[in-house]
Design a binder for these strands. Structure first.
Lengths: 140, 140
DNA sequence: TATTTACCTACTGTGTCAATAGGTATTTTA
DNA sequence: TAAAATACCTATTGACACAGTAGGTAAATA
């Protein structure tokens, strides 16, 4: 399962994309709109800043903003930053001491194929693809 | 990440498939061949029996055997039995109180698409697909 | 009857998840 | 210059799952 970190990160990025061009967006606003604890979001946003995906400005009038345009982010990089990896098994991690079974392992090829598939899926999706055509819905 | 339960279950099933027609295979043998603690495998195998995927026979000369032919199992059902679900987010689980955001959630369609993809992947793979063409390798 | 096997219940250490708590540093504005 | 609003920082916590381990009982065969 994708953890709340990855999912919330995605929602923060979407929220910021929806308010692109409005300057710095305070985390408080995002937390209220998304109905997520601001305190918890701090942890997530910290990672996004550290990873260079967001830009944070302190002080009054401060807040967060996207470092790039929404179509220049992939969902994959956002998820991977917060989740650590998308690999389904440790054997596929770079730098993993290759397991002694790897030469004869009958499941490894499947995990590889699977990993390539999901990697392609998430890296093929842009943040802008998630924004939808709907702007705020005004009808009741 | 797929846990050891799912991965070990797959290896048990493969091992049994490789020794199909040899009657009851003691768990001890599987544990030794796969180099996994027999005690831990007991937990996994219990689930496989409970799920009807394996048949266990007690007593001397007992052991485990496949309930069906290797091409009548999908990898998906094996993994799902041990992992609980393959769904990437709780929102997709049947019986989940549908989240209040579900109508407007911009990420839900992506999770759905993702779930359908991985479900198709794992349910499209049969246990027999994993056996490979190589029988035991005899050369040094 | 001895042996071998499956099957059962309980326990444990470790780590991650999902936050919460309480601060400090920074910047703008009144 | 003081107040307010913001990001940013470290630490802590409860619950739970993961990955086993321990020690038995029941069943079947030789």
């Amino acid at each position: 399962m994708i953890s709340t970190k990855g999912r919330y990160a995605l929602r923060v990025m979407i929220d910021l994309a929806q308010h692109e061009g409005e300057g710095n967006i305070p985390l408080k606003d995002i937390a209220e709109r998304q109905d997520i604890s601001k305190k918890y979001l701090e942890i997530i946003v910290k990672e996004l800043v550290k990873g260079g995906l967001l830009h944070g400005v302190s002080g009054k009038g401060g807040g967060y903003s996207l470092s790039r345009k929404p179509d220049e982010y992939t969902v994959g990089e956002i998820l991977e930053l917060l989740e650590g990896t998308l690999a389904p098994v440790a054997c596929l991690l770079e730098g993993a001491d290759s397991c002694p079974r790897s030469d004869t392992c009958l499941t490894l090829p499947m995990w590889k194929e699977y990993y390539e598939m999901i990697h392609g899926f998430f890296y093929g999706k842009k943040l802008s693809d998630l924004l939808g055509s709907r702007d705020p819905v005004y009808y009741i």
